[in-house]
Nucleic acid binder design. Structure first.
Length: 544
RNA sequence: GCGCUUGUAGCUCAGUUGGAUAGAGCGCAGCCCUGCGGAGGCUGAGGCCGUGGGUUCGAGCCCCGCCAAGCGCGCCA
């Protein structure tokens, strides 16, 4: 509409012919400014030198009547404000009920394929809270992208080879021997956490001492493999506790078994991106504007993890042909981002197709008291401990409520509280409250299927509808910016609009027609609340 | 030293990609139950948006400098 009006103005000569800026329509913060607003005249003023207010007035006059629009107003310094018709707003209640679960889904992605890889923690130890943040972020982002019309695959990359696995295997072998009181030293760079002792005991219980008969060089990899399988299984279980699951568990080792590694290295070599220096093979990223080169193949011929990552991304883009690839990495990997993008570019893939979301550090607190999260053995707070303490829903909501690139405090005391201080309950309570109203209506035998939504005319009712209609916008915003934290704020706004409506408008009353209309409204609100909660991977309780 | 991220109300944080009077939750000071769930509603106080410049009709947002915090800068992952 705005574009049309601008073009018309240009045709009639009232506006100089300049290329239009991107037409942006936004929701004003102040409700007095209508439901939607555009600052297009202000933007045009710069290019044309015409007074923005004049442009706005001219354009507003050219915008034709529409069924949805009640009023178009011009406000200084040059905004055009739109107000929606209240009967059109009310009719949206029927639309929402009809769309059901699908309301809020949009076709931003147009069915393009996006892979989202997250967590991907080395299976050498249990998940801690920082990993949990990435896990919840990733799974929610995946939900958002599905709602955004993308075909999404969730993937966990298992680092099942290399240095750390060797250390892990040797550590486990030492603990295994210690189970039967053989006096051996742990490797000095080993994994000293208590879980390694438990793991060794478990293997001893299940497999007996038969590995003692083997030579060390035979026993270490076999015990290591057993331990690794167990760790992966435990990681999988811990993730399921917070509602995180994957479509694909991808083995790093498979890249070598399937020849991806050989293929990608020779590809880089042909492109002149590999140079030999001090017996090692380097990816010469300095030639592409990076700060330094990186070793791909060590002096002893073994590949670095960077080599694996190159092969892995080659596999994602070229072999599996994803349109977009999203990686969620912890803050300690951010130095890796630009060289990864550079190498993807060197493989002839547009670097924008790789997006990396960095999930920042988490500090745990109990009220005022900081909980030390030390890397030193035994001292780590695992994800499982936190979930068991505060519950999966609260855990998810709290992790989601901060943008990924901000460090956050996680207050265990607050998350655990079942009181109004805790926003998790505020939102879920709204859902349960509606469920309770609908139960009451059912008990009284009320059938609201033919309710007349045009009876919904008061401000609290319309405000609630406006709030419900924001869901598709939130989905779009979150999917576009890869920022799911908007959901938590939206969920609270939505709950607030409902609670406020509830206080002012009696739903089940003597006025039977109005009762049926309002039952439709709250049922629609329940749908939106549930959808929002489900997008965040949370439950929508019928009772609390 | 270099790179990335962060700095907004007492606390924890948003801020729709440069727009209108900077918001929310908690905390604080009050008010509201003769009705569907008070795990609720309403009102109020509280701000040099780290800091100094710049860009322009307009900056919390963009550019440069500085200060502070976190992370990274291995032939570890």
């Amino acid at each position: 509409m705005l574009t049309q009006a601008a073009h018309q103005a240009q045709k009639s000569g009232n506006l100089p012919a300049v290329t239009l800026p991107e037409v942006v329509v936004e929701r004003p913060q102040n409700p007095e400014h209508g439901d939607y607003a555009s600052s297009l005249p202000l933007k045009l003023a710069r290019a044309t030198g015409v007074n923005p207010l004049t442009i706005a007035e001219g354009m507003a006059g050219l915008i034709g009547a529409a069924t949805e629009i009640d009023n178009i107003a011009v406000a200084p310094p040059g905004f055009i404000n739109f107000t929606l018709k209240s009967d059109w707003l009310a009719s949206q209640v029927d639309s929402i009920r009809q769309a059901g679960d699908a309301y809020g889904n949009i076709d931003l992605g147009q069915g393009s394929r996006v892979q989202i890889e997250f967590v991907s923690v080395n299976p050498t130890g249990p998940l801690h809270v920082g990993h949990g943040r990435g896990a919840i972020l990733g799974s929610t982002l995946a939900n958002m992208l599905v709602a955004g019309g993308y075909r999404v695959e969730r993937e966990y990359y298992i680092n099942d080879m290399g240095n750390q696995i060797d250390v892990f295997s040797r550590s486990l072998y030492a603990r295994y021997q210690q189970c039967v009181n053989i006096d051996v030293e742990m490797p000095s760079d080993g994994y000293f956490g208590d879980y390694m002792v438990d793991l060794a005991k478990e293997i001893m219980a299940e497999e007996g001492d038969r590995f003692l008969a083997l030579s060390e060089s035979e026993a270490v990899p076999r015990i290591g493999q057993l331990g690794l399988d167990k760790m992966v299984k435990q990681i999988k279980e811990d993730l399921e506790l917070v509602g995180v699951s994957f479509d694909v568990w991808f083995s790093e080792r498979s890249l070598y078994d399937n020849g991806q590694y050989e293929k990608v290295i020779s590809l880089l070599r042909r492109g002149g991106h590999i140079a030999e220096k001090e017996e090692a093979n380097w990816f010469v990223s300095t030639a592409l504007g990076e700060d330094k080169d990186n070793v791909v193949v060590r002096g002893d011929g073994s590949p670095t993890y960077f080599a694996s990552d190159i092969a892995y991304h080659y596999n994602k883009f070229i072999e599996r042909k994803f349109d977009r690839v999203i990686n969620i990495w912890g803050a300690d990997h951010q130095g890796h981002v630009s060289r990864m993008k550079t190498v993807v570019g060197a493989l002839g893939i547009a670097p924008e197709r790789l997006e990396v979301v960095i999930s920042q550090l988490v500090t745990l607190r109990r009220g005022e008291e900081l909980v030390r999260v030390s890397k030193r053995s035994g001292d780590i707070i695992t994800l499982r401990e936190v979930v068991e303490e505060v519950g999966a829903d609260a855990c998810r909501f709290f992790f989601l409520s901060r943008s990924a690139d901000a460090q956050m405090d996680f207050d265990l005391e607050l998350a655990r509280k079942e009181s109004p201080e805790n926003p998790v309950y505020y939102v879920q309570y709204a859902h349960a409250r509606i469920a309770s109203i609908l139960r009451l209506a059912q008990e009284r035998g009320i059938d609201w299927g033919d309710g007349d939504v045009s009876l919904l005319t008061t401000e609290p009712e319309l405000a609630l509808i406006r709030q419900m209609m924001r869901l598709p916008e939130i989905v779009e915003l979150s999917a576009q910016t890869l920022e799911p934290h908007h959901l938590t704020y939206y969920a609270q706004d939505l709950a607030t609009s409902f609670h406020s409506f509830y206080k002012q408008c009696r739903v089940v009353s003597k006025d039977e027609a109005l009762t049926r209309a309002r039952l439709k409204l709250v049922e629609a609100a329940k749908l939106i609340l549930a959808k929002t909660l489900h997008l965040m991977g949370m439950t929508a309780p019928e009772k609390m």
